[in-house]
Computed example of a mutant assay.
Amino acid sequence: MPVWQWLLDAAGVLLVLAVLYGLGLIVRRRLLSRHGGTFELSYRVRHAHVGRGWLLGLGRYSGESLEWFRYFSLWPRPKRVLQRSEVTYTGRREPEGPEQISLYPEHVVISCRTPSGPVELAMSPASLMGFQSWLESGPPGTDWTRGPR
């Protein structure tokens, strides 16, 4: 078989794999959002360089936790899970420098405190309102006068 046929076959296989990957992302997104409560949520994984280390993703409320899924992954489980009782909202700011390119347009960056350290998330102002409401609506019997554990 000539070399050009091998190259054509290889290009065809790569095209089929790219289409399957795209379809897999679409199906996964549909499965994650079928019960509602999903929104665009970026998560900052590295804080070493100013404005860098952001990963785009989806957030989903699941009872007492907020699950974060990487956007371009086929893995069905959340990459990070934040428990409502362990998260304290500390503030918000506008994206600065390279963050403006890395994040979705019009998203704001929020800072939270968790037992494992500070966490930065980026979401739309409407999603931020929902996030704050979710944090404040703890289960009955929650003592709001007590500080975080």
Rank of each mutant, 00 (worst) to 15 (best):
V27C: 08
R29C: 10
R29Y: 11
R30L: 10
L31A: 10
L31W: 10
L31R: 11
L32D: 15
L32Q: 13
L32T: 05
G36P: 11
T38N: 00
F39V: 05
F39W: 02
E40R: 00
Y43I: 05
Y43F: 15
R44Y: 04
R46N: 15
H47T: 15
A48L: 10
A48R: 12
A48C: 08
H49C: 06
H49Y: 07
V50E: 06
V50Q: 02
G51I: 04
R52I: 01
G53C: 04
W54R: 00
L55C: 03
L55A: 01
L55G: 01
L55D: 00
L56Q: 02
L56P: 00
G59Y: 00
G59A: 03
G59M: 03
R60G: 02
Y61R: 04
S62H: 07
G63A: 03
E64F: 06
S65L: 02
S65T: 14
L66G: 03
E67W: 04
R70K: 06
R70E: 09
Y71W: 07
F72V: 02
L74F: 04
W75T: 04
R77P: 10
P78S: 04
P78Q: 03
V81P: 12
Q83K: 06
R84Y: 09
R84H: 04
E86Q: 14
V87T: 08
T88D: 12
T90I: 08
G91K: 05
R92V: 14
R93Y: 15
P98G: 06
E99S: 03
I101K: 11
L103P: 05
Y104T: 14
Y104E: 15
Y104K: 13
V109W: 11
I110G: 12
S111M: 12
S111F: 04
C112N: 12
C112M: 14
P115N: 08
S116C: 08
G117L: 14
G117T: 14
P118F: 11
P118E: 15
V119Y: 10
V119D: 07
E120V: 05
L121D: 03
L121I: 04
L121Q: 04
M123S: 07
M123E: 07
M123Q: 10
S124G: 08
P125C: 12
A126S: 14
S127R: 06
L128Q: 08
G130K: 13
G130A: 13
F131Y: 08
F131M: 09
S133Y: 13
W134V: 09
S137G: 03
G138T: 01
G141N: 06
